[in-house]
């Protein structure tokens, strides 16, 4: 298995977010992760990416135990993540933000780093804003910058934490195409998203978390039929389209 979590536990003080979770993901898989707020989805990503240290249990990448490797080290091993609440480098330009990832994440130098940063910006539609200060970006643009920064590290495992929230339908489709392309180039993708329909349309596998535990795991359509999933989280009106976002305010999508 490419990514293996073995009985991982994580608590914040007395509050146990993940009591003990095991998960195996194969190389090149595209896994959607859903679950109610507080289910431990972002904590799971923190534990995988090394931003958080698990209290116990193991994280393995390509067979090697990486539990004791810090976030920067795991990034070098090919794990990239986006943050649910965007964490851009506000004092830098958009281009410099991506350049940090290309230089230190992908360990590229000079023109190669520039090219990688540029490509990531182009893929996420941020190229026209390359020389703008990151603190001038809107929330949606910052989410795109999260994605650009993750891509620019040239990852083998991409952890996406709600990158589609707030996008218009057209933008969601564009984003889905981009992520599918990345996945098809061999990158394993784990994607947390509240837009279940968007996830189901592209993910090969859906994992449902509740209270830090996996309550369902399998083919998306089948998982959504599991009664426990319907009851605990999704409600019973999954077949309606009312989960697809309505077009938001006039944030125009910059051309690539």
């Amino acid at each position: 298995m490419f990514l293996e979590l073995g009985d991982v536990r994580k608590a914040y003080g007395r509050s146990v977010v993940i009591p003990g979770l095991s998960l195996a993901v194969g190389e090149g898989e595209f896994v959607g992760v859903i679950g109610p707020n507080g289910a431990g989805k972002s904590t799971l990503f923190g534990v995988i990416s090394g931003g958080l240290v698990a209290d116990s249990g193991q994280v393995k990448l390509a067979g090697a135990d990486i539990s004791r490797i810090d976030a920067a080290g795991r990034c070098h091993l090919g794990i990239a993540r986006t943050f649910q609440i965007p964490q851009p480098f506000l004092g830098l330009t958009v281009y410099e933000n991506a350049l940090v990832s290309a230089t230190f994440g992908a360990k590229l130098d000079g023109h190669e780093a520039e090219a990688a940063a540029c490509q990531a910006l182009e893929q996420t539609g941020l190229l026209p804003l390359a020389n703008n200060a990151a603190d001038t970006l809107t929330l949606l643009q910052r989410k795109r910058l999260e994605l650009a920064r993750a891509i620019a590290t040239k990852p083998r495992l991409l952890l996406l934490d709600e990158v589609a929230g707030g996008l218009t339908d057209a933008e969601v489709i564009e984003l889905l195409e981009l992520i599918v392309r990345i996945n098809q180039s061999g990158v394993t993708v784990l994607w947390i998203e509240h837009l279940v329909h968007a996830l189901v349309s592209v993910a090969q596998r859906l994992v449902v978390l509740a209270e830090g535990q996996i309550v369902a795991d399998g083919k998306p359509r089948e998982v959504l039929e599991v009664p426990a999933v319907r009851e605990t989280y999704l409600g019973s009106d999954l077949d309606d389209d009312n989960e697809v976002p309505q077009p938001q305010s006039g944030d125009s999508h910059a051309a690539c």
Binding site: G51, H76, F83
Partner: peptide, 9 residues
């Protein structure tokens, strides 16, 4: 945190 996640030591 973001610097570390981007591979900066």
């Amino acid at each position: 945190a973001a610097a570390a996640a981007s591979g900066v030591n």
